[in-house]
Design a binder for these strands. Structure first.
Lengths: 189, 189
DNA sequence: CTAGGCATGTAACTCGTTACATGATTGG
DNA sequence: CCAATCATGTAACGAGTTACATGCCTAG
């Protein structure tokens, strides 16, 4: 009893920690590529996973900064994660307010519409820059070793490549929409 | 007081209904392009929005099928939505278990990894087919009228184009990963 | 004859966010 | 001096899911 309360975040944490030990704080940041969670959800969950012996931790004292707990995966945790991977994944969900606004964009004037899309482009260009930076760092550090499935950096590498491609596609789409908006505006033909 | 409890789903419903009146059941299906919600969340919300005079509804009797309520947007609802559109959208979130599995894929054997990605491709090819079908229907029905921002179908059109492009990009990425997996496997060089 | 689609609703629960709480250090 | 970063935690609430409930019709 009490077992089996799933929670995908649980596996998200395990999959991060199997690559390298992290503090809860660090996990909150790294998680962002494929899952979003606030620290208020992460910390209690880490405590629970530690109590279930899926994780262990080491207390690290720091000078000038608060102390931290570095969590690592136990053998039990590794097995737990491994068994889960081959099971069929749940259907993906995406919640993006921008898309609702885009759906109802015909209600607004062209200027407001353009503003929304140019802001979107700016935001995504920031992301692209950041992803490219991370990928550049990874390449410097690991070379094409991470292109091998046996590398513990393989997963992170392919996910950053995916996000990058998707973000670029989103930008391209925004430009396409902006072109449509401009076409409608011009009083030519 | 009591005002301002946000909920993006509220605006998702309004933006659907401003295009055309729908039943709660229908909304649940149409919503899928940009927001996912179960009927147990939709029905009570529709009731609330109706009580707040943002929506009205008409009771429609059907033969062979259960009766239904066709909801429509009131002027107040339209204004409410319009005001919201120009405000900066919340940061998007995506939760996809597959990505967690992809992150930890290096833990598994190559066959399991391949299976995961080929299943993903199959699922997304289904989606692409469906989106293309919908776009085809839209083109037949409205022609390039929907490429104009003043058309009430503009939003739906651009969102389907977006989803289609993104799904295709996802498939391309999966193939790229499969290539990497095959490279590692072949005992050539 | 039974599984699935149409159609609406409520109750109980879990997942996830916001707000509260603390505190030292660094950069503008 | 104020904001941000590092670092961890709890409490209260809101958002979203699962399960319960009903009932008729159609296709395999």
């Amino acid at each position: 009893m009490k077992e089996g309360i799933t929670i995908s975040l649980e596996y998200a944490l395990l999959s991060m920690l199997v690559r390298k030990p992290c503090s809860g704080y660090e996990l909150g940041q790294l998680l962002d590529v494929f899952w979003q969670a606030k620290h208020s959800q992460i910390y209690p969950l880490l405590t629970r996973l530690e109590q279930e012996d899926l994780l262990g931790y080491e207390h690290v004292e720091q000078s000038g900064k608060p102390d931290k707990k570095i969590y690592f995966l136990t053998d039990k945790g590794r097995e737990h994660l491994q068994k889960w991977i081959s099971k069929p994944p749940a259907v993906p969900i995406q919640r993006d307010e921008f898309l609702i606004k885009a759906y109802a964009i015909w209600l607004t004037d062209i200027e407001t519409a353009k503003q929304l899309f140019t802001d979107r482009i700016a935001a995504f260009e920031q992301k692209v820059k950041y992803r490219e930076g991370v990928l550049h760092e990874m390449e410097k550090e690991f070379g094409d070793k991470m292109e091998e499935i046996t590398s513990r950096h393989f997963g992170r590498y392919i996910l950053f490549q995916r996000r990058l491609a998707l973000d670029k596609e989103e930008i391209a789409w925004c430009h396409w929409v902006l072109d449509l908006l401009n076409k409608g505006k011009s009083p030519v033909s």
